[in-house]
Simulated scan of single mutants.
Amino acid sequence: MMPWFRRFAPDPDPPVRLLCFPHAGGAASAYRGLSALRPGGAEVLAVQYPGRQDRFAEPCLESIGALADAVHAALAPDQTATPLALFGHSMGALVAYEVARRIEHGGGTVEVLAVSGRVGPGVRPEAGADGERRLEEAELIEEVRALGGVSDELLDDRDLLQLALPALRADFHAVRTYRGPSGPLLRCPVVAVKGAEDPRVTTAGATAWRSSTSGPFALRTLPGGHFYRTGQLDEVGGVLTEVLGPPTRRPQRIGQVT
């Protein structure tokens, strides 16, 4: 399991495993609460990117493709033998999507891809003449403040901020340089979830995930901004429980999530 995956509530024989991908600057611990909820009876595996928490000494990866390649390579046969669903928030939605593409390209199956707080992979909100320019420190901090999810105390504490900056720089660069998919559509169902007041993810942007799959698609909107999940863990777990039903019912269940 180490170093890429964390199990906070191990289950040797779950009906489905839910592989969860953190946001930019985030870590596996962001999914500790969801692990305890076990949505749909799933065992939650939380991805731990290098350059943070217990992997702090490792160099960060600076592209979505490199992250997806590494996660896909780390998936053991016993993890993919059990039905596998993916969930990612913000940057994690892109990494989850790219891992799903790699699984399907290799002949595997993804039960459901749930993407949160991110526009479809063909939409580039960071596009522009300086889209690939690395943000200056002040610009990066302003971006993080605008999205929320990181306390002002951390951003105003110079010592703590210096510990967080390498991961934030790498992750924001990965998102800003991501160019979207090329190749066949996914076959798995896709469910997009967004906060109603998210300043970066419009309804149209979230609905653009429909173009990523030939399978069923649904959009769910919950109250809140980009980090709507904060304080709404039960609601997020409820959405995932709805879509992680028995395989024969999944398309119908996903069609009911609006």
Rank of each mutant, 00 (worst) to 15 (best):
M1C: 08
M2D: 08
W4R: 02
W4Y: 10
R7T: 15
R7S: 14
P10M: 05
D11K: 06
P12C: 07
V16Q: 03
R17M: 14
P22C: 07
H23K: 06
H23G: 11
A24K: 12
G25N: 02
R32T: 14
A36Q: 11
R38Q: 14
P39G: 12
A42I: 07
L45P: 14
L45R: 04
A46M: 05
V47D: 09
Q53E: 15
D54I: 12
R55D: 07
A57F: 04
G65T: 11
A66D: 08
L67M: 15
P77L: 00
A81H: 01
P83T: 10
L84D: 13
L84A: 08
L84P: 15
A85K: 13
G88M: 00
S90E: 05
G92H: 08
L94C: 04
V95L: 01
Y97N: 07
E98G: 01
V99P: 12
R101W: 12
R102S: 13
R102F: 13
H105A: 14
V110R: 00
V110W: 06
L113W: 09
S116R: 01
R118F: 05
P121W: 03
V123D: 09
V123P: 04
E126V: 15
R133H: 14
E136K: 05
A138V: 13
E139R: 01
E142D: 15
E143L: 11
V144C: 08
V150Q: 01
S151M: 02
D152L: 13
E153Y: 09
E153H: 11
L154A: 08
D156A: 15
D157G: 12
D159W: 02
L163F: 09
P166D: 10
R169E: 10
D171Q: 03
R176D: 13
P181K: 03
R187W: 00
R187M: 03
P189Q: 06
P189G: 13
A192G: 09
A206H: 08
A208R: 11
W209S: 12
S214R: 15
L219K: 11
H226A: 06
Q232A: 01
L233Q: 01
L233K: 01
L240A: 07
T241S: 15
E242V: 14
E242A: 10
V243E: 00
V243I: 15
P247W: 03
T248E: 10
R250A: 07
R250F: 03
I254K: 01
V257L: 08
T258H: 05
